[in-house]
Design a protein around this nucleic acid. Structure first.
Length: 472
RNA sequence: GGCGGUGUAGCCAAGUGGUAAGGCAGAGGUCUGCAAAACCUUAAUCGUCGGUUCGAAUCCGAUCCCCGCCUCCA
């Protein structure tokens, strides 16, 4: 398998530290709000990657954190008249609900920054002892220039960074630093009612970057296989994580850095973000969009590519989802009929070929577009086969299982037994069949309308009438 | 200003030297009592200019557009 490593800017053969096992850390959300489509894209991108590794037989230990204390948490808690921990609880719960609705596999572990304060303090102390950090007015800063590879991940040149210093940091804080590129490991308490913990440097709270270094190394080890996140985290967040972790352990922190592309909106294809006020929360989106469609929409584009959130693209995703659902339902329907089966070796070979194509595509840095192309091709052949009077039942069975396994990697799961007995519906369908047999089209159409009103869609086939429940 | 990404048919998109996959939409057709679903057919010389080569979307140079990051951000 090959994965694109941000650290080297090229695709590299993937080799885990321990054969058969993968240690993977993905930066989670700051829980001060409901997650939006852009956040979900990242979660889903790495969910697909994780599921493919698992499909490939790896045992994946997947850690994703919750950032449950920072400036935004503190401000939002004040605005809402609540406390930071209560705010965090509320939005962690919402996060788990929203991602479950999108069929995201829960992480092996979901650690919270505020539950790791002791470890964070110890970690910072080590950096101080080693001379990589310094205390100033109750704050602790990381001495970035002391770390030899600072800027490597993002390709940033330290001298250029100084010139481009942005205005997101207060003048007061900048003035306290030895160097503008230094960043906070520990922030002193500003207001008496502000959430804070005791530390050797006074009351305060952790800086943003330190928590990920602490949790990743604590739960996965000093060196981990994969670290993921949105590409906006490359700098400074991940750059700082490397600086902190490697300064402390003296070991390489991460072998493969993976970053997902953004969700964009509108004709301008602007990044969806909270600061631009152009975001849609997952909750809002699910009011009008089928969860499977939203899920597939985000899973069906390669993780590094930008994804434009538009009605047109969602419609395309819906068409694809319906197509997969339809072929599986048709297969299930044909497996029920008693028509004599007929072996078809060519179809078995087709399934093997699809497997090779699918895996070759996914092995190439999760090229889901090519993987899906293999599946579309298989589905077309399958639809053709399913129209024949005699089908290869063993193959249809194998096809059905295999396709569902593959779709499962993208997070699609269908129930194909909509046909399960509903006596009332069965009776109406049968009544209509009888009307059709007598060419009583008026009655037949009236019954179809009646079933339609009940949310039942009919399809007349040579093997009999097939019905499915319409989506709501 | 620095760093990075991107530009392929109306839309999504594959493709890193050998003469443009696939999907959606559109058009036509087959099947069907009608419908649904399905199947078949059908479109682009690859941002622009120049170069290398027998041959380039693919390599080199220049140039333009768009997007992102440069300590809030998935």
């Amino acid at each position: 398998m090959k994965v694109f490593n941000t650290l080297t800017r090229q695709k590299e053969e993937f080799k885990p530290l321990t054969p058969g096992q993968i240690k993977m850390y993905v930066c989670g959300p700051t829980v001060y709000n409901y997650i939006h489509i852009g956040n979900a894209r990242s979660v889903i991108a790495f969910d697909v990657i994780r599921r493919y590794f698992e499909y490939r037989g790896y045992q994946v230990k997947y850690v994703s954190n919750f950032t449950d204390v920072d400036d935004k948490m503190i401000n939002e808690a004040r605005t809402e008249g609540t406390t930071v921990p209560k705010l965090a609880d509320k939005f962690i719960k919402a996060y788990l609900e929203d991602t479950a609705a999108l069929n995201v596999e829960p992480a092996t572990l979901h650690p919270r920054a505020t539950h790791e304060i002791k470890e964070i303090i110890a970690f910072i102390q080590t950096l101080l002892d080693k001379g990589y950090a310094y205390v100033e007015s109750g704050n602790v800063f990381y001495r970035a220039a002391k770390f030899p590879h600072y800027g490597q991940l993002s390709g940033q040149n330290i001298d250029q960074l100084e010139e481009g210093a942005s205005e997101h940091i207060s003048a007061e804080e900048q003035a306290q630093k030895e160097d503008p590129i230094d960043f906070a490991l520990w922030k002193t308490q500003k207001e008496p009612d502000e959430i804070a913990w005791d530390s050797p440097w006074g009351k305060g709270r952790p800086g943003w970057h330190i928590e990920c270094s602490v949790m990743a190394t604590k739960y996965l080890g000093e060196t981990i296989d994969i670290h993921g996140g949105g590409e906006d985290l490359e700098f400074p967040h991940h750059e700082n994580e490397i600086a902190q972790s490697e300064a402390k352990t003296g070991q390489k922190f991460v072998d493969y850095w993976l970053h997902n592309g953004f969700v964009t909106v509108g004709a301008e294809a602007e990044k969806m973000s909270k600061s631009l006020h152009n975001f849609v929360t997952v909750r809002e989106a699910l009011q009008t969009i089928d969860p499977q469609v939203l899920r597939f929409f985000m899973a069906s584009v390669q993780y590094r590519r930008q994804l434009n959130f538009s009605d047109d693209n969602l419609q395309q995703a819906k068409t694809a989802v319906d197509r997969f659902k339809n072929v599986l339902q048709t297969a299930a329907f044909r497996l029920q009929d008693q028509t004599a089966a007929k072996a078809d070796p060519a179809m078995h070979e087709l399934l093997s070929q699809t497997k090779r194509d699918f895996e070759a595509a996914m092995d190439d840095d999760f090229n889901v577009q090519n993987a899906l192309t293999a599946l579309y091709s298989l589905v077309t052949s399958m639809n053709e086969h399913l129209q024949k009077p005699q089908i290869d039942k063993e193959f249809v069975q194998a096809f059905s299982q295999q396709l569902q396994t593959w779709l499962g990697i993208f997070g699609l799961e269908f129930s194909t037994n909509d046909q399960a007995g509903d006596a009332k519906i069965e009776a109406l369908v049968k009544e209509r069949d009888e009307a059709r047999a007598q060419k009583d089209w008026a009655k037949s159409d009236q019954l179809r309308d009646q079933l339609q009103a009940m949310g039942i869609k009919l399809q007349d086939t040579p093997q009999g009438t097939r019905w499915t429940k319409l989506e709501d």
